[in-house]
Each structure stands twice: as structure tokens, then as C-alpha cells.
Design a protein around this nucleic acid. Structure first.
Lengths: 205, 205
DNA sequence: GTCTATACGTTGATAGAC
DNA sequence: GTCTATCAACGTATAGAC
């Protein structure tokens, strides 16, 4: 039991470090966020920081844990039930994806992922297995059910899933880029919904 | 006139620097590629490097010029002619995109783009205008022609273009990631073609 | 747990001899 | 144009006093 955390918010130095590190890493990347800056952000000296983490790498790994920790809240039964109805499944899935895209915390983690993707082999592999494969698996299961129920045209469910998720990813990337520079995302605001509509027209029978 | 460059390949120090810098930047990013490493790669001292470029930034900008300098070789007439035939237009466009994806030089530039996209505002804006907008413009023109000729179902050409290019981008990203770690791209080898086939089935009348 | 002090490698860049 | 020498700033990290 983590003590009486529910009553009194601890906000320990260690937590402060993680918060500061998250902000700096997701903004400047691993190399760009120096230990000095992190310590300064917390309000302590670099040396004090080493009382809580072994080194910079350890801090980063702690931060990076959150990159792939936002699974969709879809239960097995929920997938089956929704997929049976067709389009509503895609709509709910996309709405959840859109929420993640515009959620500050997840936005930061997505940016960190994009910054470090080409620099960190572990992150690349996690992206493939925990982001890509996971999404493909969930979606293709849904499409398979739709196919069984003759809601959509016959086709490889994995291919349909690939086609569907790739556009979601691209929209998310664009939104993240625009928001990073505080540009308006008005032109992309309804892109998620348009995608679902277009896609459903493409596969429905 | 650049002298007798056609006969005797100059391969000046300045060119060597650019080559070395390109390799290092596209592998380690701007911060990861130090001036020392670039100089060492060329075989000179850092100080000698400053006889050819004002500073590191100037070298990077010279390298970065090549990121968006690979336009598709589509003339206005070619678009009209091919789009009139429908699917062959998508096939040719995709084959060119696939070539770029697997071309070493373009692969390096794409990786550099991905590495620096979140770190460099200028690159973000160029990505939007010179990559995204340009592709959307070319593709939507093709889809518009197809629509006029009743080859495909009626829909916003820009939306169709968006849907089409987003998947190409995602495939390219995945291929680049896999190749970076020298992993096999067999599982993705035919993804481009599958995309065209699926997409054509989605929009044709 | 935090501080000061310190160590030591790396970075981008310049001055001046050849 | 290239070299040696040198620089200040910044990087991560440790030792030891309080």
C-alpha cells in the first residue's frame, strides 16, 4: 500500500523530477534536455538529482514508460458487440484515438516518440509491437467480425486494419505538428470523422 | 559555367564535407553529429572545416536542402492523361513513391526529416507545404479528373487524396524504421501494391 | 536530501603559424 | 587551405560537508 497517498498528495522530489523531465524530454528530446535543465526546473542542483535516479538514462526510461501506456479501453466483449454493428465500432475507436491526439499528456508522449523514434532502437521495436501490431490486432478482429456478418466487403482484415490505422496516424502527426507551433488545427478538426465516413463507404456492402 | 566538371570530377573538400555531413546528420541528427566527427570523416581538422562553411548550422541547411528536392516527375499533361485512365495513375504514382522509399539517398533524407521534424520549426513548415500540400494538390487533381470521367465515386478530391497519401506515408515510415535496424522488409514489400488495389476498389464505380 | 566543489569529457569556434 | 594550440561553455557524474 502506498501509504495515505489518496488523502495527501505527496509531490515528492522524485515526482517533481519526473514531471520536469517529461516536459523537457518531450520538448527537446533526450540529448536536448540536459540534467542541468531538469534540475533547474525542479529547483535543485544536479547532484541532488542523483539521489533519486542513478543517471540520466534511468530518468528517461521512467518517462518513456508512459509512451505506450495508453491502451484503448476496449474489452473483448465490447469489440465483438460493437463490431457486430459495423460503423459504430470505427466511430468509437476513432473517437478514442482523437481524444488521445488532443490530450496534453498523450500529445507529449507522442512527440517524444517521434523525436526519439529514429534514435532509439528500443523505441522503434516498441512502436512496432506495442503501437502498430496492437492496433492492427484489435482493428482486424473488428473487421473480421464485420465480414462474417456481411457488413463489409470481403478482404484481408489485416489489410483493412492497416489502411484504417495509417490514416489515423497521419492525422495525429499533423495535428501534433500544428499544435507544437501553436497553429490552429481547425482545418484538421473534422478529419477524423471524415476519415471514418469515407472509410465506411469504402468497405460497406 | 562550373568549369570542366563533366570531364573531371572535382570532389572538392567542400563536397566531401557535405557528403560526410549528410551521412552523419541523417544517422545521428543535428545534435548527434558533431563538427569533430564530420571533420574526422572527411579527414581534416575541425578548424579547416570553417574555411568552407561559416558554422555547423550552415552545413546543416545545405544538407537539409535535399530533403524536399525529390519531386515526382509528373508533368501537367502526364497527370491528365494518366488520371483519365484511372487506376494506372495511382499505380504509377505509388511506384514512384515506393522507389523514393527504397532509394538510399532519399531514405537518408526521410530519416533526417523524421529526426528533426519535432526539433526544427522550418522543417515542420516545409513538410506541410512542400511535402503534404504538394502531394495533396497533385493527387486531388488526378482524382478530380477521374470523377469528371465517372471512373470513381463522387467525393471531395482533397479528402480522397488525403486518405491515399496518408497510407503511403505510413508504409514509408515503417519501411524506413525496419531498414534502419537492417530488419527484413519482406512483410511490407507488397504493401504499396496492396494499398493501390484496396484503394481502387474503394473508390471505383 | 541538498548543498558546494570538483572532476573530466565533449562541444562549437577562433587565432595564428605554415 | 590546413595545421596546432587554445578557448569558454556545456555535458554527465562523483565526493564529502552540512
Amino acid at each position: 500500500m502506498p501509504e495515505n497517498r489518496d488523502i495527501k498528495k505527496k509531490n515528492t522530489t522524485k515526482e517533481k523530477i519526473l514531471t520536469a523531465a517529461t516536459a523537457l524530454f518531450s520538448h527537446y528530446g533526450y540529448k536536448g534536455a540536459s540534467v542541468r535543465k531538469i534540475a533547474a526546473e525542479v529547483g535543485i542542483r544536479e547532484s541532488a538529482l542523483y539521489n533519486h535516479y542513478k543517471n540520466k538514462e534511468e530518468i528517461f526510461l521512467e518517462v518513456a514508460k508512459n509512451i505506450f501506456s495508453s491502451p484503448f479501453s476496449f474489452s473483448e466483449d465490447e469489440v465483438k458487440e460493437l463490431a457486430f454493428r459495423g460503423k459504430p465500432f470505427l466511430q468509437k475507436y476513432t473517437m478514442q484515438y482523437k481524444m488521445l491526439t488532443f490530450d496534453r499528456k498523450n500529445e507529449n508522449m507522442f512527440r517524444l516518440l517521434m523525436i526519439e523514434l529514429m534514435q532509439n532502437k528500443s523505441l522503434r521495436e516498441q512502436f512496432m509491437s506495442q503501437y502498430h501490431d496492437k492496433n492492427i490486432a484489435l482493428l482486424s478482429e473488428g473487421f473480421f467480425i464485420m465480414m462474417q456478418n456481411s457488413l463489409i466487403r470481403s478482404c484481408d482484415p489485416m489489410l483493412i486494419a492497416y489502411e484504417f490505422i495509417s490514416t489515423l496516424f497521419y492525422i495525429r502527426l499533423q495535428v501534433t505538428l500544428l499544435r507544437f507551433d501553436a497553429y490552429s488545427t481547425n482545418s484538421l478538426a473534422t478529419q477524423f470523422e471524415k476519415h471514418v465516413d469515407f472509410f465506411w463507404e469504402s468497405i460497406k456492402i
